[in-house]
Simulated scan of single mutants.
Amino acid sequence: MARKRNQFKANNKMRNLITKLNPKSPISEQYRTIRTNIQYASVDNDIKSLLVTSSGPSEGKSTTIANLAVVYAQTGKKVLLIDADLRKPTVHYTFRLDNLRGLSNILVGEHTLDETVNPSDVENLDVISCGPIPPNPSELLASRKMAAFIREATTAYDIVIFDTPPVLAVADAQILANVVDGSLLVVRSEHTELEAAQKAKEILEPAKAKLLGTVLNGREKKASNYYYYYGTN
């Protein structure tokens, strides 16, 4: 029974990266549409750093960001995906990393970017996990060390994508939205309350990073088992 549960969990994690496992599926095509919409939304300014957040938990932001990173990498861009959710990290599960060291180690000066980066099994895609969960996530993300790290990462990579905590839960996403080039808000169909989505949008809009759009996640296509993911400006 335990073996079946573990296999079920492993299969769930594999399905999260549908853009890698089934790049020709309708869902994968929708992730490519999101990528294209981001490019059109930022036509006058090259997006080198992007954060993805949600209003609350269980809205699909981590699945969205992992697949978005894959479709960027599939274009030949050198991509770095960073788990900046220093409270409830998930990226290391998706990419099956040990999470012994990561972003938190960089921000306290224990390790460098080169020492923490993990090549994934997707060509052109590298990953930095959260690392040990620190007692002061917001302070670390707002530090000069973080700003310097972003400059270093965006010099080494074509695009750097950050997974952040839900914007209504803590200040972390709002902090990072002031030091990256763009932000993306994920909402889930029939789950996210309209008031929560509007509040999240109001929080992100004043930030220095442009709110590029919203991804509607989990909307079922009728007469099909597929779920559509798509972005709007």
Rank of each mutant, 00 (worst) to 15 (best):
P166N: 02
I161M: 15
L113K: 09
Y31M: 07
V117H: 12
A171C: 00
Q198P: 01
S104I: 01
Y226M: 06
L103F: 04
P132A: 12
S120K: 14
V122G: 10
A197Q: 00
V127N: 07
G218H: 08
E115Y: 09
I38P: 06
V160W: 02
Y228E: 15
I18P: 05
E202T: 05
P137M: 13
S25H: 03
V215C: 04
V187R: 14
A2P: 10
V122H: 14
V43W: 13
L100W: 02
A69F: 13
Y157S: 02
V52S: 05
L68E: 11
Y229K: 06
G102N: 08
A148H: 08
L50T: 06
E152V: 14
S62M: 04
V179D: 07
E29Q: 11
N118V: 06
K199C: 00
K221Q: 02
D83Y: 06
P135Q: 04
K88N: 14
F149D: 11
S189I: 08
I203P: 00
V187A: 15
E59W: 08
I47R: 12
V215R: 05
R15V: 05
T164K: 10
V108N: 09
V91I: 15
L176T: 09
V71N: 07
L125P: 01
V52G: 01
S138Q: 03
L107I: 04
K199H: 10
V187W: 15
E195M: 10
Y93L: 15
A148T: 09
P137D: 13
A200W: 01
P165T: 09
N225I: 06
K4A: 09
A147G: 15
R87N: 04
F162E: 10
E110D: 15
A177Y: 05
I65P: 05
E123N: 11
L103R: 02
D85W: 05
L80H: 01
L21C: 01
Y229N: 09
H92R: 09
N217M: 08
A169E: 14
V179N: 07
S62P: 04
Q30R: 13
T232P: 00
S62N: 02
A69S: 12
L185T: 01
Y228W: 11
V108S: 13
E195W: 03
V180T: 09
E123A: 14
L184I: 05
E29D: 08
S143M: 12
V70M: 12
D181R: 03
T33V: 14
D114L: 09
F162N: 02
A84T: 06
Y40K: 06
K77I: 01
N45S: 13
T116E: 08
V127T: 03
A10Q: 15
V160M: 13
A153R: 01
L204V: 03
V71I: 03
N233E: 15
A84W: 14
D46W: 03
Q39E: 11
M14R: 06
E195L: 02
D83I: 01
S49N: 02
G218E: 00
P89R: 10
D126W: 11
P89C: 12
A200I: 01
V160L: 09
V117N: 02
Q7A: 15
N99G: 00
E195I: 07
T36W: 14
D85E: 11
L86N: 03
N67H: 02
V108K: 12
F149S: 10
Y230I: 00
Q198I: 04
E29M: 04
N45E: 14
K221C: 04
D158T: 05
L86A: 07
L125M: 03
E220W: 00
